[in-house]
Design a protein around this nucleic acid. Structure first.
Lengths: 143, 143
DNA sequence: TTTGCTGCAAATCCTTTGCAGAGGT
DNA sequence: ACCTCTGCAAAGGATTTGCAGCAAA
């Protein structure tokens, strides 16, 4: 039950994938557009968006930054983790702040100076798991 | 060296903060607007956005979902963590995938069914720590 | 009285979509 | 040939901004 049962490897799709595999800069859609345009000057931004979506659905690439582009606000300013429902995008507080000291040290082999981290749990909220809505069950979500 | 040296506690700002403290639903800006409008029917959406921004900068509330709303794409489809530069929003791969099994079990005292998690590290990239750009040094960033 | 803040509306930014024709398989 | 995909352009949703008057301090 795929969203795209009969995919075609078009020139545009192939070039987007090739260029994305070449770089490690995690470009935005617009940056991908600029890169790909050097090889396919007549490609449209809409096509780039459509293909990035399809390629991330098929698992060939990853789409970064959370599914919901909508920002949300929390009246509690103290540091705590959140859990997001994969189906309805509802956000709840996660009970405790896990300590990640070990991981923080291990990750520090990058050339980045580590300041902190952001941990978000993904799950299914009670309302959604009760309902007959099947959802995708997929993680990470592609929107 | 604050962005807003002389804040005024206006009626609008106070009501937004009060209402946000009452709920634990992590509303979007538009939802905050609808809630606050019950008490201040003539408030504008622009004012709500401006105040949510100011309140999160002053640390009175939290803004959820990453600073950069811009989605980014990764040609490497295998599971790995990312690290984001707080100053320039550049994203790099984090060396290893830390295991969070313990934390996952501990967090499961919510009524959510846990599927997975998303861990992002925040830091300063080499370019930005070299430059004279002071940045905010603040985490979480408010963009 | 000063100057930060407001409501309003237009603008901006990123992304999605409708359409008719092009092009994989 | 079939039917997915394309370029184009317009629409969409969320957020930001310019402005003239308003109101905290």
């Amino acid at each position: 039950m795929q969203k795209h049962p009969n995919l075609r490897m078009t020139r545009q799709r192939r070039v987007i994938l090739e260029e994305l595999r070449k770089v490690n800069t995690h470009p935005s859609a617009d940056e991908v557009y600029e890169i790909v345009r050097k090889r396919l000057p007549r490609i449209s931004l809409g096509t780039v968006y459509r293909n990035l979506e399809i390629l991330s659905e098929s698992g060939d690439i990853q789409k970064l930054e959370p599914g919901c582009s909508l920002k949300r606000f929390d009246g509690n300013p103290s540091e705590h983790c959140h859990i997001r429902c994969i189906r309805c995008d509802r956000i709840a507080d996660a009970p405790m702040a896990p300590d990640l000291e070990i991981d923080l040290k291990r990750v520090n082999s990058t050339d980045f100076e580590i300041i902190g981290h952001r941990l978000e749990f993904i799950g299914v909220c009670p309302e959604c798991s009760d309902s007959s809505n099947p959802g995708t069950g997929q993680y990470p979500p592609n929107d």
